[in-house]
Design a protein around this nucleic acid. Structure first.
Lengths: 227, 227
DNA sequence: GTCTATATAGGGATAGAC
DNA sequence: GTCTATCCCTATATAGAC
C-alpha cells in the first residue's frame, strides 16, 4: 500500500541505480564497456541527456552531437554504448519498462476495499509518472517513431495499464459499489486524466496543483460519476 | 447552434476549399505560382500529404522526397510553394487556424441555457476535431518543434480554448446551476477528454464509440461532478 | 576506455532545361 | 509552371591514436 508521495519517492530513487544496472546487464551484448561501475555511470548520463533533449526538440531532431555536448561524452565514447541511434531508444525504453513494471506490480492488488483499490492504482500511476515524467513523456510523444519491437512493448504496456483500471472498475460494478456504466469509457477517461498530468506538467505546476490534490480530484470526478 | 454531426460536416466540407484559397492568398508572397486554381489544387495535395506523413512518422523524420512521392509532386514543383521545409509548417498551421477560429466563433455563444451552452461547446470542439483530426493531431504532437511564431499561436489557441470552457463553467457556478468547484481543474479535465478523442481516435473507433456517444459521455461525467 | 579526425550517405535546396 | 540533375552541408558512423 502507498503511504504518500514522499515515501514513494524515497523508495524509488533508492532503486534507480539498480534499474540502470539492469539495463546494462540486459544490453551487455551491445555495450563494449566491461567495467560495470563506469558503464552504469555513463549510461545514466546518456539516458538523462537523451530524455532531456528528445523531450525538448524531439528525438529525431536531436543530433548525436547535441547529445554528446549535453552529456559531456565524445562521439567515440557514446558509440561504446550503442551501435546506432536507434539503440538509444532501446536503452530509454527498457529503462522505463523495468521501473514501471516493478512499481505497478509492487503497489497494486493488496488493498481490500474496492474504492480504495482504485484510488491506490490512481495514486501509484500518478506518483510513478511524477518521478519518471521524462520517460512517460518520451514514450508518449515518440511512440509513433519507435522501432517495431519497442512499439509493440509500448502499446502493450499502455493496454495493460488501461486493463488494470478496467478491471478495478468492473470489480466495483459487480460488487454493487458502483452504478452500472460503460466501464471501458470510464477506464479510458481515467487514463486520459492520468496522462494529462505528465503531458501538461507545467500547467499544473503553474496552478499550484500538487500530485495529491490531483489524485483526489481524479477520484472525486470518477466517484461522482460511478456512485 | 449545432444540429448534429452530419449537418456540421456538410457545412464545413463545403468551406474547405475556401480555406485553402485563404491560405494561398495569405501566403502569396512566398508562393511563386500565379494561377489561383492550380495553386489551390497543389496546396491541397501538399497539405494533405504533409499531415499524413508527419502524423505517421513525425515531421522531422519525413523527408521532402517522401512528401514528393506521396503528393505526386517533384522537388522543383514543391519548392514553388515553399522557401524551405519550415514553411510547410506555416502552411499547415495557418490552414488549421483559419478553420478553427471560424468554426468556434460560429458555433458558440448563441445558446441560452448554461448547461446547454457548455454541451454545445463540447460538441463543437469534438465535431471540429473529428473533421480536422489530422491537423489537431499534428498541432499537438509537433507543438514543441514549431517555429517561434507558430508556437506562440499554438499555445495561444490552446489557452483560448481552455478559457472558453473555464468561462462556461464559471458562468454555471455563478448562476447557481453548478456546485462550487475548482473551475480551472474542471476546464483542464474537459480539455484533456476532448484531446483524448483526437489523440486516441483509433481506440474509440475500435470500441464503436461514435462522436455523439462520446459527447454525451463527457457531458454526463462533468455534470455528475458539477451538479 | 575515451578521444579526435575522418569517411560516407542522406536530405535540403537550387539551377536550368523544357 | 513543372521536372531532372546536381550541389553541398549536416549528421551518422567508424578508424585509429592515446
Amino acid at each position: 500500500m502507498i503511504e504518500n508521495y514522499e515515501a514513494f519517492r524515497g523508495e524509488l530513487s533508492m532503486s534507480k541505480e539498480d534499474v540502470i544496472r539492469d539495463v546494462y546487464r540486459q544490453n551487455k551484448e551491445r555495450i563494449s564497456i566491461k567495467k560495470e561501475a563506469t558503464a552504469v555511470k555513463n549510461l545514466t548520463r546518456i539516458i538523462e541527456s537523451t530524455l532531456r533533449l528528445a523531450n525538448s526538440k524531439g528525438f529525431h531532431a536531436m543530433t548525436l552531437r547535441d547529445l554528446c555536448g549535453d552529456s559531456g561524452m565524445s562521439m567515440g565514447g557514446l558509440y561504446a554504448y550503442i551501435r546506432n541511434k536507434e539503440d538509444l531508444i532501446h536503452l530509454i525504453q527498457s529503462h522505463g519498462f523495468i521501473i514501471t513494471r516493478r512499481t505497478l506490480l509492487h503497489y497494486t492488488g493488496e488493498v481490500e476495499d474496492v474504492r480504495d483499490r482504485l484510488f491506490a492504482a490512481i495514486k501509484a500511476h500518478l506518483y510513478l509518472s511524477e518521478l519518471m515524467r521524462a520517460w512517460f513523456y518520451f514514450s508518449y510523444m515518440e511512440a509513433k517513431s519507435l522501432p517495431a519491437e519497442e512499439k509493440r512493448d509500448a502499446v502493450a504496456i499502455e493496454l495493460e495499464i488501461e486493463e488494470i483500471f478496467l478491471g478495478l472498475i468492473e470489480d466495483g460494478i459487480e460488487a454493487g459499489v458502483y452504478r452500472s456504466r460503460n466501464a471501458r469509457l470510464v477506464a479510458s477517461m481515467v487514463k486520459a486524466l492520468l496522462q494529462d498530468w505528465y503531458l501538461k506538467r507545467r500547467k499544473y505546476r503553474d496552478q499550484n496543483v500538487a500530485v495529491d490534490d490531483y489524485a483526489a480530484f481524479v477520484r472525486d470526478v470518477i466517484e461522482s460519476y460511478l456512485l
